[in-house]
Amino acid sequence: MYTSIKEIVEAAKTRQKRIYELAIEQEMEMTKATYDEIWERMDKNLKTMEDAVKRSTEGDGVFSPTGLTGGDAVKIKKYRESGKTLSGDLMMLGVQNAVGTNEVNAAMGVICATPTAGASGTIPGVLFAIKDKLNLRREDQIHFLFTTALFGMVVANNACISGAMGGCQAEVGSASAMAAAAAVEAAGGTPEQSSHAFSTALQNLLGLVCDPVAGLVEIPCVKRNAVGTANALVAADLALAGVKNLIDADEVIEAMYQVGRRMPRELRETGLGGVAATPTGIAIRNKIFGKE
């Protein structure tokens, strides 16, 4: 089993394999499941992501039971259609998909955790943004997800992927790095470039706290996924341009873990710090759950 990004890059290079091939190989070995079973399961995950994105822009959009979030994916879509976006259509399509997925999540709809539900918009955000530009067939999109998974397992086993343990850097930070690495591979980059994209993306979000208003997965989670997607696209482009990250991916993972360990509990998914502790954040909590 691959326990470091370095091992993944080495194996891909020496064995002349794509990273998703290594992921599927490892999955068969670890779970004793057949190739077809594993493929079908990832296909179901992809289908879930497609359905969530689709649902987010139907009618006026989806709204959470609290009404704090919802409808923004529809607004972003209309804005995109106006052709006036500052950061370009592909970038804003990614943002729209990320926001839409997390709006469905906040509305207690069906999503695929990637790696978590709070960070569930980031990876589909990137995948569905680059899909048309790179002409990714359905099988290529499934490959993309296997690549994110192999990188994600290294983070999960060496550091953490939960906001309660490591803050949002462990959730959206990890998702963004996983997506960046897979986007590079999908665009034809080398395994090393995937690794540089991964470390750049995670490094850029180090220190990000988990501060959910009223303990809900709405503010700031939905928009954090927009930035997770944008950050992944930037990191992937940097790596594909040949820009390297001098701190290697495994060291950035360890740094993320160490930062998480030093984060006070108020900033780790307790809803007691960050924007959750602002006057408005507290007022929202009191309105929804009553005064404590």
Partner: peptide, 24 residues
């Protein structure tokens, strides 16, 4: 001990929101 043994531990589960750790 390795906690995350499968790709589907990090890409998945398919679940009802809102939180993978607090709900799923």
């Amino acid at each position: 001990v390795i906690n995350y043994k499968s790709c589907f531990d990090v890409i998945g589960p398919v679940m009802i929101g809102p939180s993978s750790s607090h709900t799923a």
